[in-house]
Structure formats: C-alpha cells, structure tokens
C-alpha cells in the first residue's frame, strides 16, 4: 500500500515535470518574438535588446532551461509580462473561480446524470429509453460556446432573470454551471446507463431479487455498488479536465478563471504566465487523479492497491 502510493506520487511528479518541460520547449520553438510583443510597436533594436536581457531571453536555450528549473524549485515562476506581477500569484488569484465553477458543474452533473442513467438502465430497450438516449446525444453534440450563448440570450437578454457575465453574485454561477453541465450530464449518464445495465444483468442481482430484497436496495446498494468505480473515475477525470480551465465557457461568460486568463496570455505571448498556468493546472489535475486512484479500495473492497487495480 505505502509502496504503491509512493510509486504513484513519483509518477505524478514525473508527469508534471514532463508537462512543464514540454511547454517550455514548445514556447521556445515557436516563431515570433516575445520582446516585440511586450515592447511598444515603435521600439528600437536597442530597446528590444534591453527587454530581452531583462527577461533573460538573450541567453542560450539550455541556460534558460537551467534557470527555469532552478526557479521552479524555488517556487519562482517569473514575472508576467502583461500583469507586471508574479505569474504564480496571478494564476493563483484566478484559480478559486475556476475551482468554484468546476465544483458546481460536477455536482450539478452528478446529481442529474446518475439518477438519469439509472432510470435509463431500468427502462432498457424501451421507447422511453431511446428518447432519453437521443436527448443525451443531442446534449453531447452541442458546442459549449453555442449552448452558452443560447442560454445567455434566453435567460439574460430576453427574460433578464440572471446576470449575463462575470462573477458579481452567486446567481452568476448558474448559467456557466448549466452550460458546462449539459455536456457532462450527457457523457456521464450514458456511462452510468452502460455500467448499471451490466449490473442489472448480473446473476447476483437475480439471486438478491429472489430473496425479496426491495428494488430500491437492489438498484442503489447492489447494482450501483458494483458500478461505483467506473462512475467515480469518470466523474473525477471530468472534474480534473475542468480544472484545466473550462476555457470556452469562461470566455463566453467572461468568467474570471484561469481559462479566460490563458486565452489572454496566449494572445500577448506572456510566456511566464502560460508556464505558470500549465504548471498549476497540471499539479491540480495530477493530484485529483491520484486521489481518485486512492479511493478505489473504499468503493470496492475487492480492489487491493497496486495489485488488482490493473486487472
């Protein structure tokens, strides 16, 4: 157990390091001069040189990487070009908003998708299930930016009951949550339906039913108990993906999270800010995935960490 956890933590650290290094290399490989993006359009060559020296951009690539790694271990991710502040601080100040949106979206999705999936599994192969299935496929097929704009038009412009953008009150959370939720509900409910379908078909359920255990108990305790691992994995993976910034939805609703921050950082070629964003989100993603892995033995007593997980 301890050995497994240590191994997983080691893997996680390696994953974070690889991600950040990839970003470092990509950013340096690309055409385009960050000094030119940073300086005014009328800057002279001397001024550009001064800016390059100021940010260490005039040094050889290997040396830049060395400095970058050294700073990384000191928790120093450089100064954002456009905010003129510590890149890490800028990202961390935006992170709570993204986490807030991700938490509310995943809760909303779980509360709707799990009962919906169970309902679909109970009515397997009926016209009702087909209808629900088609509705879920439609939800999965809508581009998030489009459904976001549509919701915004209906509930903020035509019937102005909810704020259109930004985060000024808790009501501002509703539309982004629903927009993100639509896609997640579609994906998760279909997964739940598949897993529960298999659960309902299992022989142990017939035995349990023949012994007079009520349907409610059969559904939630027995069938769900056996579907818990894949469902929780899916919820966790989706949640981790959202922490990378729900980029599109954040842009639609002008949500002050990391997603909209990163779009701006890319436009201004703000290297330190991009690196800091990727680092912070990669750490969070990997942590969430690690936590999910560690919950498996709680959900399913047959799982022994480090042994049966792979089977």
């Amino acid at each position: 157990m301890v050995r497994y956890v240590a191994q997983r933590v080691g893997q996680s650290i390696l994953a974070i390091f690889l991600t950040v290094s990839t970003v470092f290399v990509l950013v340096r490989l690309a055409p385009g001069d960050p000094a030119a993006a940073y300086a005014s359009p009328l800057a002279t060559t001397a001024e550009l040189d001064r800016i390059r020296a100021q940010f260490g951009l005039d040094k050889p690539l290997i040396q830049q990487y060395g400095i970058f790694v050294q700073d990384l271990f000191h928790g120093n991710l450089g100064t954002s070009f456009s905010f003129q502040a510590s890149a890490l601080d800028v990202v961390l100040s935006r992170m709570p908003y993204t986490i807030m949106l991700a938490v509310s979206a995943i809760l909303f999705a779980a509360v709707v998708a799990i009962p919906a999936g169970v309902w679909m599994a109970r009515h397997a192969d009926t016209a009702r299930e087909l209808g629900a299935n088609v509705a879920m496929i439609a939800g999965q097929s809508m581009p998030e930016f489009w459904s976001g704009i549509m919701l915004l038009t209906v509930f903020a412009v035509l019937v102005p009951v909810l704020p259109a953008s930004g985060f000024t009150s808790w009501a501002g959370l509703v539309l982004p949550t629903v927009t993100v939720g639509i896609l997640q509900i579609a994906l998760i409910s279909r997964l739940v339906r598949r897993e529960m379908g298999a659960g309902f078909a299992a022989p142990y359920l017939t035995i349990a039913r023949s012994r007079g255990i009520p349907e409610r108990g059969l559904t939630w305790r027995y069938a769900m108990g056996n579907s818990a691992v894949p469902v929780v994995t899916a919820l966790g993976t989706r949640f981790a993906a959202m922490l990378n910034g729900v980029v599109v939805v954040e842009v639609v609703f002008a949500w002050p999270g990391v997603g909209s921050l990163v779009v701006r950082a890319l436009e201004t070629r703000d290297y330190p800010l991009i690196q800091a964003t990727v680092l912070v989100t990669a750490v969070l993603t990997v942590l969430v995935q690690l936590l999910i892995d560690l919950t498996y033995p709680l959900l399913d007593p047959r799982v022994r960490l480090g042994k049966a997980v792979a089977s």
């Binding site: 990509l26 990378n244 980029v247 599109v248 990163v262 779009v263 436009e267 070629r269 990669a282 990997v286």
Partner: peptide
Amino acid sequence: EAQLSLPLLLMLLLVVALFG
C-alpha cells in the same frame, strides 16, 4: 497515460497560438 494528465485544450491552444 501521459496524455491523460496533459491539460489538453490548453496545449492545443498553445500550439495553435505559437505555430499559427
């Protein structure tokens, strides 16, 4: 496995922004 832990959309945007 490695690709699972990459912040995907972020990387895609980064590549497009950098390489046109």
